[in-house]
Design a protein around this nucleic acid. Structure first.
Lengths: 206, 206
DNA sequence: GCCAGATGAGACATTCATGTCTCATATTTG
DNA sequence: CAAATATGAGACATGAATGTCTCATCTGGC
């Protein structure tokens, strides 16, 4: 029991360090371990005790990001319901980890680790499938390829992460800004206020 | 005259190297000078003759990207005409340099060079002004802040660059995919085929 | 064909981040 | 309070990338 509690404490500690690391690495991939350790509030020695080396740290950051994104896809249940509301759920689930996604977008496929690459491919495929399904359902536009929709969505999630981190976007507005822009685009829908249609069902919890 | 021709030759040569460099650096910011030199088809010695050092190279890549983006804003004449067509012109002008923009999006504000930062700020302000004007004209949605629209637009341009570089998007489709997604969003406009409206005036040169 | 400038290949020194170590201190456990 | 463990601070070695050099080769102009 005490052993379990101990390992769990270490695990969350590792994740805390990884989240601090991503805050630095997403903007400056060449940051020194000194900076990362300082950002995490620990010494370089402890950082080395938690992670054998720099590449191990980077690898674990990527793994954490992919795990979080996979968890977001799970909690959003993107395989169920109609595609539009599924995507809205995904937005809500993914925005809290937008910074991790921003890191992933940058370090896209520079990993030689098979586990990481497989994990990445699986999640992208799930996203791709969501858009394909939406296109078949008549929800998403078919002029834009599902591959491009997946890519653009992930780019915008990353953009959300950067914007929040740099203080250019309030976290409160993040999910709304992402969902509205991606789903509805930048153009006004109806210049005449005769058609009060909305882009999707309002969940009412804003 | 021959002197001018000589310096111009060198300048374009520098730009050629910079464009090769961005192809490597946009994906792997930690790439060695060896790789960059090989990507540019020159030796490391010549690379050092063209650029005093690594940071000078990075700085010039950033400067080139900003110059190209500024030129795109100029040729698109974003300050003239209605905002929607101005943005379409900007898309067409910016897409060829999307990879440079992708690099800029990554190395956002890590420069301590005042000239670079000023140049960056000016261009972002121009983009911001375009969206503000469009919102006042009733073209762009006012629920999304002009700052977010600027940021998201740039993120998508960067995404275009990455997708093209990695072969996930055909260069032919780039401008269309970017403009349609950003302006109109991912959702189908009219599920019923009764209203054949389009998102903007077709220029007819596709 | 000759000369000047440019380029490539490689050796060399240097700098700096990394990795490893020790020891003192702080914190927790019993 | 005492022991055990975790942490921080710093020194030190190592290795890799960078910066600088020389020399051979190539190209272009005269």
């Amino acid at each position: 029991m005490s052993h379990l509690a101990y390992t769990r404490l270490m695990a969350t500690d590792r994740d805390t360090v990884l989240e601090a690391a991503v805050g630095v690495l997403s903007r400056r991939p060449t940051a020194h371990l000194d900076e990362i350790a300082r950002a995490a509030g620990i010494s370089r020695a402890t950082l080395h005790r938690l992670f054998p080396g720099r590449d191990a740290l980077i690898r674990d950051v990527g793994r954490l990001g992919l795990q979080r994104f996979a968890a977001a896809l799970d909690t959003a249940a993107v395989e169920e319901g109609d595609a539009r509301t599924a995507l809205r759920r995904l937005v809500d689930a993914a925005v809290p980890d937008a910074m991790l996604c921003a890191f992933l977008a940058g370090e896209n496929q520079l990993y030689d680790d098979d586990e990481i690459n497989d994990l990445w491919e699986v999640q992208i495929d799930r996203l791709h499938a969501l858009f394909l399904r939406g296109q078949r359902e008549g929800v998403f536009r078919i002029e834009l390829s599902a591959a491009w929709l997946s890519e653009a969505f992930f780019d915008l999630v990353a953009g959300i992460g950067w914007a929040i981190q740099d203080g250019r976007l309030a976290p409160r507005d993040a999910a709304f800004s992402l969902a509205e822009l991606f789903l509805g685009g930048a153009l006004r829908r109806d210049p005449t206020p005769s058609n009060p249609q909305h882009l999707g069902p309002e969940t009412g919890n804003r």
